[in-house]
């Protein structure tokens, strides 16, 4: 059963990811991204990480991709791109190198971690401090809401607050960039404004 769910969700994730790259229509690519995010949410549910699954859907599918689509619609870039045109010459070779490198790195990480877990007893996913399989630990901690909250708001509270500061900075910067300059403001010469 778990294997079946994994295969189906994995197919969703991969299919969506390939769709993001292959579809040459921006809206279709964004919808493929939603498919991928849903697949990941399903994988979270299969590990009994219900909270992460819900947040994955609310934040990524519900807010971020909606924002993508909103921008695509408002800016009117919702036309299929001609992929033969390449405005920035080096990007494809660089993308190929980075992609290949990432693939090798991830593959190495998977192989290394597999060796590490088989070295530990049982060979299962014994990664939690309670020495329980991941799903059982998640079930015990109320769909890992409490455990996650305790962790984020006690041990990692500084990092958490710093992240929120970062978000506020981003908001302020966006407002500054989007603001129309007033007459008395400093204007860079040569921009024609």
């Amino acid at each position: 059963m778990e294997f079946l769910v994994f295969v189906l969700a994995g197919a969703m994730v991969l299919g969506g990811a390939i769709g993001v790259v292959v579809r040459n229509h921006p809206v279709h690519a964004a919808l493929s991204l939603v498919l991928t995010l849903f697949g990941i949410a399903v994988l979270f549910v299969a590990q009994e990480a219900n909270f992460l699954a819900a947040v994955q859907v609310i934040v990524y599918a519900g807010a971020i991709v909606v924002l993508f689509l909103f921008v695509i619609m408002l800016l009117g870039v919702d036309k299929a791109e001609d992929l033969r045109l390449e405005p920035f010459k080096v990007q494809r070779p660089v993308a190929a190198i980075v992609g290949g490198g990432l693939l090798v790195l991830l593959g190495m990480a998977v192989i290394a971690s597999r060796d590490a877990t088989t070295a530990v007893k049982g060979g299962g996913l014994e990664t939690t401090t309670d020495d329980l399989p991941l799903t059982a630990a998640n079930r015990m901690h109320d769909g890992n809401i409490r455990a996650l909250a305790r962790d984020v708001f006690s041990d990692h509270v500084l990092a958490f607050e710093l992240t929120s500061v970062l978000l506020v900075i981003a908001v302020v910067a966006t407002v500054m960039l989007a603001r129309k300059p007033r007459k008395g403001d400093f204007v860079v010469e040569g921009t024609g404004k």
Binding site: N50, F51, A54, V55, V57, I58, G62, D142, G143, I145
Partner: peptide, 11 residues
């Protein structure tokens, strides 16, 4: 009755 029922509503 998932442990995250309310979040499911939001999702």
């Amino acid at each position: 009755d998932p442990p995250v029922g309310v979040l499911l509503l939001l999702a």
